[in-house]
């Protein structure tokens, strides 16, 4: 039998889901970065006119820093899930995804506190409106990331990690990391530099 008559090896497909997720994550990040740049530009304009952006003392750094810490921890847990998926370690994967989800829920809870604490009205002024536009968009993205993690968690409950599910976990992790990066922007631009 000649080698040319042998059946072709199965084509090695790169991680299609991960590539698609990478592109989608990039698009979402660009949208968020554009939003933050509008915020920064408007704040600069206000500063140039000598206008006050936020009334002093309304936006506190404590809860915002706590959210940053929470999301920083979630980077570790989501990577833990990726590693568990690669190693086909179902119990660890399930725990890691669950803890990540809990961190996400905690951040939303803290944002609720921030909204109550600042008590901004959406039509209170340019600063307040853009504050809600930026943070609201971040929360929407975080909810999308949590939905992705929830789906992968449910799928991991239903059966062992296969190659497809491992790729799905990686895709979720990519989007999650992007969300953390977006919050880093919010933390620095909205809460620290005010």
């Amino acid at each position: 039998m000649r080698t040319t008559e042998l059946p072709a090896a199965e084509a090695i497909r790169p991680r299609t889901v991960v590539v698609g997720a990478l592109l989608a994550t990039g698009a979402a990040f660009i949208a968020f970065a554009a939003l933050v740049s509008v915020y920064v530009q408007q704040r600069q304009q206000a500063a140039a006119l000598g206008e006050e952006w936020f009334p002093s003392g309304t936006v506190e750094l404590g809860p915002a820093g706590m959210m940053m810490m929470t999301l920083a921890l979630s980077i570790v847990t989501v990577q833990w899930a990726v590693q568990a998926a690669r190693a086909e370690d179902r119990p660890h994967g399930f725990i890691a995804l669950g803890v990540t989800l809990m961190f996400g829920a905690a951040v939303i809870n803290q944002f609720w506190f921030v909204y109550q604490d600042t008590a901004f009205a959406i039509d209170g002024g340019r600063a307040e409106l853009l504050f809600y536009a930026v943070t609201g968009s971040f929360i929407a993205m975080l909810i999308a990331a949590m939905a992705m993690v929830t789906v992968t968690t449910i799928r991991s409950l239903l059966g062992p990690f296969g190659r497809d599910l491992a790729h799905a976990v990686q895709a979720s992790a990519l989007f999650w990391h992007m969300c953390v990066l977006c919050y880093f922007l919010v933390w620095y631009v909205v809460f620290i530099t005010k």
Partner: peptide
């Protein structure tokens, strides 16, 4: 991003 800002603005247009 433009649309998000415009929409928020449209809702809080007194601001």
């Amino acid at each position: 991003a433009n649309i998000i800002v415009i929409y928020a603005d449209l809702r809080g247009r007194q601001a």
